[in-house]
Every structure is written in structure tokens, then in C-alpha cells.
Design a protein around this nucleic acid. Sequence first.
RNA 1: GGAAGGGUGGCUGAGUGGUUAAAGGCAUCUGACUCGAAAUCAGAAGUAGGGGCAACUCUACCGUGGGUUCGAAUCCCACCCCUUCCGCCA
Length: 435
Amino acid sequence: MLDIRLIREKPEFVRERLATRGAGDERLVDDVLHSDEQRRQALAEVESLKAIRNRVSKEIGALLAQKKHAEAEAKKTETRELGDKISALDAQAKAAVTRRDALMLRLPNLPHESVPPGKSAAENVEVRQFGGKRAFAFPPRTHVELCEHLQLVDFARAAKLAGSGFLLFTHWGARLERALIQFLLDLHTQKHHYTEISPPFMVGPECLVGAGQFPKFRDQYYGVAEGDQPAELGKLYLIPTAETPIANLHREELLAEKQLPIRYCGYTPCFRGEAGAAGVGTRGMIRVHQFDKVELIKLVKPEEGYAEQEKMLADAERVLQLLELHYRVVLLCTGDMGFPSAKTYDIEVWAPGQGSYLEVSSVSNCEDFQARRMNLRFKSESGENRFPHILNGSGTALARLFVALLETHQQADGSVSIPAPLQPYLGTSVIRGEA
RNA sequence: GGAAGGGUGGCUGAGUGGUUAAAGGCAUCUGACUCGAAAUCAGAAGUAGGGGCAACUCUACCGUGGGUUCGAAUCCCACCCCUUCCGCCA
């Protein structure tokens, strides 16, 4: 959520920054200002009435203490009608806040000044590359072919169990998935000093609001119900990313400055409806309804937000470097960034079988946008309450990492060699077929 | 799911329908004492939102939402959460 005071004091700046996203959100600024004005008017009026009521009530108390019942009764009748006016105005003020906040929750974050302007992914800026595209002496197979040949994933039976868009890992495939999770968690906890978290895979809607997924994108998530009562629906949602529970860990808390920075990492499956995405790149493992991911989260002092983002990006890149995968880092343009983010880097890994780059990590600084939504603050050394910056980054997404790994390290005979750092986790240096 | 108890500030813990933002304690800050620190003594200090150039002032906040009342932390109703016991259960 944006700071209402910023909107009030610099509406032109806010409109200009929102406009760079190209979604037309700047048109909502006037509505916000209008309902904010209504709120303050009603507030000023009702609060002066309440001041009168409080004063008279105290006088009544004093009169009763002096046994002056007649005078007290007179004052009571005098004040009785005040209550009705107050509740009417209270309702007005409340309605204005509700209106204002409903609008505010739908305004995305303002892009940071260092973010290149642009309308779509085409205008993202490549920051750097690591490694190069592997040259093959044979036509590289796709991960689907490799998975079927090596019996790593049973696409047909996954569909039988849950429909399209789900994966059933088998044999070495299941072991590879598990090995990758373990490898990533060990790397980030032991080398990069994150604290491991294993959060719930379902959360209440307030967590999705806090992270910025609700209310605007409700249709993209899986709501679950205990039993089959429709009334139970909406109490819990399957998490779309570990960011949702982990970023909300300290919601509504007041942290001490010395607790910062806080660094968490956690493995969870991620569940996404991907509404409207059916038929687009749905073959194989690129876009699925459930995938595994190891997520990185940081809560930091605002002045350290952007330096910490660069470090987090390096932590995610390390994964691909160790796995000997070619990738590029892209700085997203204003029009391609996610709703809560002020600045986002994507890491795209090369998948030779696809002949394209796959997004395996997204490293964002959401500044205080999420912290405001979840009322997460810290008390600074000087005693003031401030909102921390909240950063999130994939470290990394698994299904696509799995794809890049197979397609990059495949051999002419259809086997897949395993990079050295992963071998202890998998217990083999090459995957040849059924375990 | 059933029963009982509980939810008050950064933490802990009192609380009578009427100067209650709410005793006391801990932690924090300032000052005194000290070469310095500890201990001790004195004092300050909640959060959020309005109004005002400002000094300042007003309002709200005792799990959440309603209600009763001139006035609610306190009384009533509903809900949420926590603890313990019972039931069910990996």
C-alpha cells in the first residue's frame, strides 16, 4: 500500500510514477483523494461532537457524585440526541475509509527511479550473462523427451490423478527433485546465512492481502474448503509462493531495529491457478499448477533495501553457477513488474531443448509496500516506528531448474550428467534410466 | 467436536459503569552520584488519526464486531484466538 500522505502531498508525482506501469492506475488517484477528503471532513465534525459528549458526560458524573440528580437528568436529555448524530457521522467516516482503502489496496507500488520505463517484457534490460549456450554435437532433446526416456516424470498419470498441469515425479526424477530442494536449502542456510523456515502451505486471505496478491488477483489462487460447505470457502488458500507465509511471519509486529536484517529461506510447493494460461506453453514442466520452490525473504532497514537486493540476486545466481547453467539477469521495465514490487530482477536460465530462456527467479524489493499492508514495523534507535523494506527472491523455482538441468547436461546417449555440487545429494554422477 | 479458564501497552500484570492512557514491575531514555560502570535516587516516555504556521489541541484504541447507556476495559450478544482436559486422528 502506498503512503496516503505521499498521495495527498505529491499527487502529481504519484500519478506520474503509476503511469509508467502503463495500466492506467493513475486515474484512481483522484478517487483516493476525494474519499480521503470526505473522510477527514466527517472525522473533523464527529470528533468535535464526541468532545462535547465526553465533556458533558464527565459533568454528569460529577453532578451524580454530588447527588444533584435533577441537574444530571437534565444534562442527560440534552445530550441524548448527540448520540444519533455521532453514529450517523461515524458511519459516514467509516464508509469513506472503506472506500479509500479499497482503492488504495488496488494501487500497485511505485517503480523505483532506477527502473527502465517500458510497456512489456520486450523493454526489459539485460544486466549480465553467465556462461554461454552449450554447443551440442547432436540435436538436443527436450526435457519432455528426456523425462519420458529416463522415466523421470509420468505426465500421463499425473493428468489422470489431477488433470493437466500437474507433475508426477518418478524414480530418478523424484530423487532429483528432492536432491535439488536439499541442495538449495543447504546452500542458502550454510553459505548465505538465511534462517530456514518451513511454513504452512495454506494461509488466510489477510496474508494474500499483505503480500499484495489480493484483492486484485483473487482469481489466480486456489481457495480450499474444509468439507464441502460453500461457506467454508475463502477461509484458507493454497499458497502461490512461500513469500506469502514467510513475508507475513511478522505481520502486525513491532520489531526492534537490532533484529534487522532478518533473512529467511524456505521450501514449499507453490500452487497457481494460472487462469487463462491454458494452451500457452503448457506442454511439459514449464507452466504447471503445482511446483516446488525455495524462496528467500529479507526484512531490512529502508536505507539498506537496494544493497540487500543486489546481495539476494547474487545468492540466487550462485545456484545456477554451481549447477553450471547458462543464464542472464534481466532488469524488468516499469510495465512488466509485479504489483507490489518497486524493482525486480529476473534470472532466466537457458534451456537448450526449448531454445529459450526460462524465468527461474524473480528478485524484488517491495520497499515498504507490503509492510504497510501488514502493519509490520520496527522501532528505530531514535524511537520512531518505521516500516522495513521487504525483499523476496526465488532461490530458485524448481520445475524449470529441473528442465534446464536436464536439457543442458544431457549426453548423446540420452543420459544426463550431474554437476559435481549436486552429486552428493543425488548419490550419482549420471542419470541413465530407471533407478 | 465437547468442557473449563483466559486474551489489557515493547514485555509482564492490576483494574471499581464516571478526571483511566489505564496502578505496580521489567525493559528503554534523560539527569544526579561515580574516574567510568554497576547499584541507588529523581524524572521522561504508548500507538494511530484529525485540526493548527506553531505552542498546542481534539478523537480513537484494553482480542474482533455489534448492543445497552449521558458515559463501557468494566454490563449484554456474536465471533476469533490461546491454554488445559476429553473425544477423534497422521
